[in-house]
Computed example of a mutant assay.
Amino acid sequence: MGTTIIHLCYFGLINVIVVLIGYQILKKRLILLSWVLMIISLFIIHFIFQHEHPVIRMLALIVTTFTCMKVIAAANDYKNKPLGLTFIQWSAFAIGWMGMRAQPFEKLGEAPLPNAWPMIQFGISRVIAGLVLIFAAHQVALLHLAPNLNYIIITALLLVGFSLILHFGLLSISAGMWRLSGVNTYYLFKLPAKATSLTEFWSKRWNIAFSEMTSIAIFRPLINKTGAAAALMLAFGFSGLLHEIALSVPVNSGYGLPTLYFIIQGGLVLFEKALMSRKIMFLKNTVIAHIWTLFWVIAPMPLLFHTQFIKQVVWPLGGMHY
């Protein structure tokens, strides 16, 4: 326990250093250095936490990845415009918000924005719903179902429960709280079940922070050099790489599977665009479009949330043992 506390202190110090150096990188537009900073920081975090529990390792890697990606995204976003962020505003963005657009924090400290409390209330309701699902997973474990069925039901309940708590709950509460301070924050998960294409799902509805990140840091800088299709696939590939850091490295297993998941998604997005360019409009049927989207998001999901990640992270995080 004492060693873990020391490691967490190192983790906090490294992220503070990233924020401090990151602001200097922003002021001098040192985009290449921002990537170097990320690589070094993640290598150090991985080395420090390599013998910690996978849950702790995962959280340390994810938080550090997001902190470093804030530097990369902001450096790219401000490279051709004046830096409008004070250090306090930059720190609030880098530490306190999961989105990747820094500009809204230029208004930090101004009058409260509308819809803050509805967002907070929405988030609280989703946290409660998520806790109910985790409780339900514990009740299913008491039923002593067939092992495979037990694994599938409990895993599904835990994954959806954690998603409700974090993605739709805590992040919505965070968005509402920042709006009370004048920052034009927004839902990062926008009714994903309403998506009628994978293009819409990944670009406008699911994890807007990741789509902002890959768009600013990968797609936009590369599109004129590689073409739109290659830039899009590289963006999805990069998203896969970040998920490897979050889902495979902590359990030292499943390498390549999250990347394959996102390569499949990128290929299907290109397929959709090809259909549209040839006026093949089967996705215009709303029912078919919903089925198509949900199937391709969910069916390959065992590649993303592979077995060892479920056993070593998801179940323990839910207070359960496989």
Rank of each mutant, 00 (worst) to 15 (best):
N252E: 15
R29K: 15
F135D: 02
E106D: 02
A156E: 14
E272H: 03
I263A: 11
I154P: 04
L157K: 08
T3A: 11
R220F: 15
G227K: 10
A235C: 10
E244C: 11
G96W: 08
S203P: 00
N252P: 10
T3I: 15
G256Q: 13
P302M: 02
S248R: 07
T185E: 13
L143Y: 07
T64M: 08
S181C: 09
Q50F: 15
I25N: 05
I280N: 06
G161P: 04
V297F: 12
A195V: 00
A141H: 11
T4W: 13
P147H: 05
A129F: 08
L157W: 04
A235R: 09
I153C: 00
Y255K: 14
L241K: 02
V16G: 08
I298A: 07
V132L: 14
L113P: 01
L157P: 01
A231T: 04
G22K: 04
Q103K: 13
H306Y: 15
R126V: 00
T286H: 09
G266P: 01
M38N: 03
K70E: 00
C9A: 07
K81D: 11
I40R: 06
G254L: 09
M281Y: 14
I223M: 13
P258A: 04
G12M: 04
F210D: 01
N184I: 02
L283W: 07
V251E: 02
I56T: 10
L159R: 05
L232T: 05
E272W: 01
V249Q: 11
L143V: 10
P54A: 07
T259F: 15
F162Q: 06
L283Q: 07
L257F: 12
V314F: 10
G240F: 12
I62H: 04
H144I: 01
H306E: 13
L166K: 09
N184E: 12
S253K: 06
E244K: 09
L131D: 14
P300Q: 08
W292E: 09
I264T: 15
A75C: 06
S181V: 04
I152F: 13
G176A: 06
F66C: 14
G99C: 05
N252V: 11
M100H: 04
P104R: 02
V16T: 13
M119C: 12
N150K: 03
F201L: 14
L42I: 14
I6S: 11
Q308P: 14
V127D: 01
W117R: 14
S215W: 09
V314L: 15
L234S: 04
Q50W: 15
V183A: 03
S215L: 15
A299I: 12
N285A: 12
P54C: 05
N285D: 12
A129D: 09
V313H: 10
K81N: 09
Q50K: 15
L171N: 06
Y151I: 00
E106L: 01
L260E: 10
E110K: 13
A229H: 11
H243R: 00
I134A: 05
W117C: 12
T259D: 11
H321I: 14
L85Q: 10
G130C: 05
R101S: 12
V71M: 07
I45N: 02
A195W: 00
L33T: 12
F43G: 09
S203R: 11
P54T: 06
W202T: 00
A231Q: 02
M98S: 12
T307N: 06
K279G: 00
A229D: 08
F271M: 06
K204V: 00
